[in-house]
Design a protein around this nucleic acid. Structure first.
Lengths: 364, 364
DNA sequence: CGGGGACGGGACAGCGTTTCCCCGTCCCGC
DNA sequence: GCGGGACGGGGAAACGCTGTCCCGTCCCCG
């Protein structure tokens, strides 16, 4: 009943374990053709499937990539995850998926698990508020992981270790706000992500900065989660605000630093009978495909999600195995790491996509 | 700089490997308190993280769950994946994610990989067209996997092995069609999933059956993929059809057997200036959250996605460990086994959700 | 015809854990 | 005071595979 092992195949083929191993895996040594065929035939007949765990143990390389996202159901993360998974899988590796729901403790646990699984690399998507106590644990884990040869890629925010792919959040948001002002918007509301999520912070920060430069102050700042539900809440707050605020013909333009939130808001606003972009304009951030099909289509910052994901995977799969050149104790403070791959951070820019959700009414 | 191993901890704590192992993992034997503390202190100080691969090898249980979906960026799968991941993670296991893009060969490769990783269970979401040649490979793999004690759960369609969670596709679609007819729809278009995807087939089949019973024949049958892009294509075909068809005031009601496709169609129809539900009505299948926030909101069959996912995980994690005899505070309780092993298939029903996308115009 | 390489294959020592089994101790009851 | 449990701890054999080293052949060349 136990699964068929390599030794079974070897025995069946009448060869040694070593030979069987050489045949069935891309070993440096190429076995004789006749033998190879015999082994392969046996393997096929027996339905041999290698034990990746054992292989990993022996090779000390697992072929596993850890992917950490906040919420896989958020199209932003899903889009990235899709690309990452495809690329990784194409390279004969596997993706170990973890969701943190933006819980710092969950993230610690997730990282522990992933590291325990001996992932070759970690891709952390989305920003994290490093700085408090639990974060020390995270930093320690990541540092230890990197020290042991693990690759780390932070996507959306630096994680203090490894490489980073980061959008110019503030700049893009700034640009967006400017564009909206040019469009004619004067009344603004912004979202303060719950608990100071850094990327949300810099997005809103950049947005507000642009407003300030234009002499405008957001008339409303709302605290809500960067989720669909957060978007619902946002819509509720907006309605409340509209009721109390002085009647004003000009639409209130609200900036949600995540598309999924903006999309949720769109839905909830409509449910509440508030027209978009007539009474309220909505802008998001991210550029998920869903925003192109919504009604109204969503104004947003389009991030090159695919490219970002691909870059991450590229880094992650780069020279998959590299033995260490332990040189002993060198004198002087010279950096021992010679092959310094230099590029440790890539900035990507997002493009302002003005769409219907912020169109200034033609005022028929 | 190799990672710190259990032996390092043991040495540091001045105990044997066996003892260290017993302390750091829920072993049946509880070591002495003093020793335990010493070991734990060492582990913490050294930053020990167990090697899950080695543990898996020794225990012959990996704590890994393989999740196979067609497309993680499809909200249907993403919603399920989200729930599965959460539940699994809460049980100290990990999710190994794979996407097949509905490629049968990719699926074979995916299953091989997952099995190679020694996953404890496989959850296959979405339907697959078992029946052709490659499918033999899949069946063989799954059967072998199950024979070796692996659990298999098919979600959306039976995979021939293990347990299944299957929506009453045909019945639900039948009900939906009936409801739409009651609403007043008379003109219909349906989607034939590309390459005969079974669940799409039974959905469309049920839908058409209901039409037939009502003496209606769909005036259009379109072949397109069950994706967002497929939805775009669908919209294009519809426009073409509308142009050629005789002018008719009644809207054409199109049934897309997947929400994501319906949502894509919604977007593309609008881009083409076709009003929904004025000129074309759209119904989907699945009940993804996005359909509630779209404009118009999407008529669909709401599947209990969360429950389905939870059921799958429940089966998958069922008596995962037989040790754990640690007689703690809680005794009695559940020691049942095998009893409900009988249940091998669960049917879930979907609820017809008539929303705006199929509303029959109030006609001024 | 002999020597040296090249080559194909096999034995075996790990890889990091778990776990079975054994062995001292200590405690208890008789 | 002695035998027997119970208990806490250690030794060592797996788990399935890789990779290094080693050995026997065979071929080619001098």
């Amino acid at each position: 009943m136990p699964a068929v092992r390599l030794s079974d195949v070897a025995q069946d083929a009448g060869v040694s374990l070593a030979t069987a191993s050489r045949v069935l895996n891309g070993s440096a040594r190429v076995p004789g053709k006749a033998v190879a065929e015999k082994v392969e035939a046996s393997a096929a007949r027996l339905g041999y499937v290698p034990n990746a765990q054992a292989q990993a143990l022996a090779r000390s390389r697992s072929g596993l990539i850890g992917l950490v996202v906040h919420d896989i159901a958020d199209p932003y993360f899903a889009t990235i995850a899709r690309e990452v998974q495809q690329q990784v899988f194409a390279s004969q590796s596997q993706v170990l998926l973890t969701q943190t729901d933006r819980e710092i403790d969950t993230e610690v646990r997730a990282l522990r698990s992933l590291i325990a699984q001996q992932v070759d690399a970690l891709v952390l998507v989305g920003s994290h508020r490093y700085g408090n106590d639990s974060d020390a644990a995270i930093s320690t884990l990541l540092e230890g992981f990197a020290r042991n040869g693990g690759k780390v890629v932070g996507m959306g925010q630096s994680v203090g270790v490894g490489r980073t792919i980061v959008p110019d959040n503030a700049a893009a948001a700034h640009e967006l706000a400017t564009a909206l002002i040019v469009e004619g918007h004067r009344r603004f509301a912004v979202v303060q992500g719950i608990a100071g999520i850094p990327s949300a912070g810099s997005r809103t920060g950049g947005f507000v900065a642009a407003l300030t430069e234009a002499g405008i102050e957001p008339e409303l700042s709302i605290e809500a989660g960067l989720t669909r539900d957060g978007g619902y809440e946002l819509a509720e707050r907006i309605e409340e605000h509209l009721e109390t605020a002085a009647a004003d013909d000009a639409p209130l333009c609200v900036f949600a630093p995540a598309d999924v939130m903006a999309l949720g808001a769109l839905g909830e606003l409509r449910r509440r009978g508030i027209s978009v972009p007539g009474q309220v304009a909505v802008a998001g951030f991210g550029g998920v495909p869903d925003g192109a099909d919504s009604h109204p289509t969503l104004t947003t910052i389009a991030l090159p999600l695919h490219d970002m994901a691909r870059q991450a995977v590229e880094w992650v799969l780069e020279h998959p195995v590299q033995d260490e050149q332990g040189g002993g104790d060198e004198q002087g403070g010279q950096h021992e790491n010679a092959a310094d791959d230099a590029i440790t951070e890539v900035h990507v820019r997002g493009d302002v996509l003005l769409r219907e959700s912020t169109a200034v009414a033609a005022k028929a």
